[in-house]
Design a protein around this nucleic acid. Sequence first.
DNA 1: AATTCCTTTCGACGATCGTCGTACATGAGC
DNA 2: GCTCATGTACGACGATCGTCGAAAGGAATT
Lengths: 106, 106
Amino acid sequence: MANSRRPALVHPDAGDLTVYEVLHALADPTRLTIVRTLREDVERACGTFPVSVAPSTLTHHFRVLREAGVIHQREEGNRRWTTLRHADLESRFPNLIDTVLQVALD
Amino acid sequence: MANSRRPALVHPDAGDLTVYEVLHALADPTRLTIVRTLREDVERACGTFPVSVAPSTLTHHFRVLREAGVIHQREEGNRRWTTLRHADLESRFPNLIDTVLQVALD
DNA sequence: AATTCCTTTCGACGATCGTCGTACATGAGC
DNA sequence: GCTCATGTACGACGATCGTCGAAAGGAATT
């Protein structure tokens, strides 16, 4: 199984998030599109995001978001489901995500 | 005079600011300290910010903030006075600056 | 005019960034 | 079994980043 053989996904504790890492994670068009999409649909598989980059690039962006504590990913079969860590982000950085999303309407 | 001989300082129009450049500008401890300081004191000279980097590094950070549209600088004598472009930022990205500052209490 | 102060410009440095192609691993379905 | 779909890992690439020291300009002061 992928769940047991592959290295477990690392998710930092809510208390360890830094505003600098989060801001940096949000300061990219592709990554902000990912976050905006997750704000509308609770959970999505990797391949279903409306972005236009190579698969390996997308994996890279997911790692940046995950290590910054912005998203959570869980594996199921050969899919990886992604959610926004909204509660953690709210408790640590109140209003930040929604303010950024509201301001970045594109 | 410095005002006429040195290349004029470039300040982007409020309408040209991008949320990505602004977020990137804010995603650095030194630069966020500068912004926080300007939120308290309206106008300050370059050398008076509570940061600990080399003068040339400070100049670099001011340029990043200025070109992102976060700060405004004017020259007077051999001093350069810096202000936050709060009204422009508010009109373009409502609540963004204050939310980030409130969240980054350090 | 000489000195001192404030700030910039330039070039450099190692590090990180966003991007991609290739190869690989897993799971589902035939 | 085999194939296809999903997604990752690795290595590479040029670009940008944050940092600094050295040198210099301009203004204020003496």
